[in-house]
């Protein structure tokens, strides 16, 4: 005789239908992180958000090209000097290389950052245009500031998130170039001739990222449209360069060492000027025409005081503008 099949206990049936996780709501009485580091939470989240789009990754990859180009130039410089037994005169004349001790590698870092600036501006526009403007548009400030954080935490987190995104792209390839030089030119006096190069590289890329972040955060805070913010920043950056260069041409008559500060009185100009100061390079290049002949021109670094002044001023204005505007609620007086 077949024994009867035992009935499945009711409890088992209930468990089969129940979700795997315990979904009941409970109060949270667990540990809390220190309030002093909550801005870092915002910075990390923003860094992840900024670097997520494909456009950021593509432009970030393109931003490595100037440093790869410089690696090729350095390799060529090594090959030509070995083959010719002296100065690689063609490359020197074009301003691409300088074999003067103390300038040999610094010039390459300065050039690479100069070529890379355009990519960094585009990245700033992609990552930063909406950093606060999107929050304004989506009323996210009310969410942020209803949490136990201050508006300074919010601003610092937003700024740092953008800064880290730009700095990673600016510093990463520069560090790669530094590593290449260290490995390839150790015996050529890389450390002996230019011992502070790493510090200069860190400062130049850091200042560039900081200035771009500050300006972007400042303008973004006053807008509800990321696109309009991006357009305004792009206009200020490019139009500023055209205007300052045109004014310099008019006032200096093309004299390379006259009204240098005016030539650098735009965002891009000041960044370029400061990096020239930091790397301590004098750029030698050829000017002229085929008919009249060429002559060598030296572009000495501009005043460090003026460049620092312009850039710190821009950064402070940007951050102050953002700080004024950031509020949890719109107060109409």
């Amino acid at each position: 005789m077949i024994p009867p099949i035992p009935a499945i206990p009711q409890q088992t049936v209930q468990n089969q239908n129940a979700p795997i996780a315990d979904l009941s709501y409970r109060n949270y009485d667990g540990p809390l992180n220190s309030r002093a580091i909550r801005w870092w939470t915002i910075a990390l989240a923003m860094f992840k958000l900024h670097t997520k789009p494909l456009s950021f990754k593509v432009i970030g990859a393109l931003a490595m090209l100037p440093y790869l180009f410089v690696i090729v130039v350095l390799w060529l410089q090594g090959q030509l000097s070995t083959a010719g037994g002296g100065r690689p005169s063609f490359l020197v004349m074009t301003g691409l290389v300088d074999t003067t001790p103390g300038q040999k590698f610094a010039l390459q870092f300065y050039n690479a950052l100069g070529y890379q600036l355009l990519y960094l501006v585009i990245l700033t526009l992609i990552a930063g245009a909406g950093c606060i403007a999107s929050d304004n548009k989506n009323n996210a400030l009310l969410i942020y500031l209803s949490k136990p954080i201050t508006k300074n935490d919010y601003l610092l987190g937003k700024w740092m998130g953008l800064f880290l995104s730009i700095f990673t792209v600016a510093f990463g390839p520069a560090a790669l170039l530094y590593f290449y030089c260290m490995v390839s030119f150790y015996s050529d006096g890389f450390f002996k001739d230019e011992p502070r190069l790493f510090l200069h590289m860190l400062t130049a890329t850091g200042v560039t990222a900081a200035v771009f972040s500050s300006i972007m955060v400042g303008l973004s805070a006053w807008s509800k449209s990321p696109r309009i913010t991006g357009a305004i920043v792009a206009a200020i950056y490019f139009a500023g360069q055209v205007v300052s260069f045109t004014l310099w041409r008019i006032t200096s008559g093309g004299d390379a060492n006259k009204d240098v500060i005016l030539a650098h009185s735009s965002i891009g100009g000041a960044i370029s000027g400061l990096s020239q100061v930091l790397y301590g390079v004098t750029v030698h290049t050829l000017r002229g025409r085929m008919k009249t002949g060429f002559h060598e021109v030296d572009y000495a670094p501009p005043s460090a005081f003026a460049m620092w002044g312009i850039l710190i001023g821009l950064a402070v204005i940007g951050i102050a503008a953002a700080r004024i505007k950031i509020r949890a609620v719109e107060v109409i007086s």
């Binding site: 929050d135 989506n138 009323n139 996210a140 009310l142 969410i143 942020y144």
Partner: peptide
């Protein structure tokens, strides 16, 4: 305190 605001608000991209 937890606040559920009246207006539509969220952090974009999440």
């Amino acid at each position: 305190i937890g606040l559920m605001p009246e207006i539509d608000c969220h952090i974009p991209g999440m």
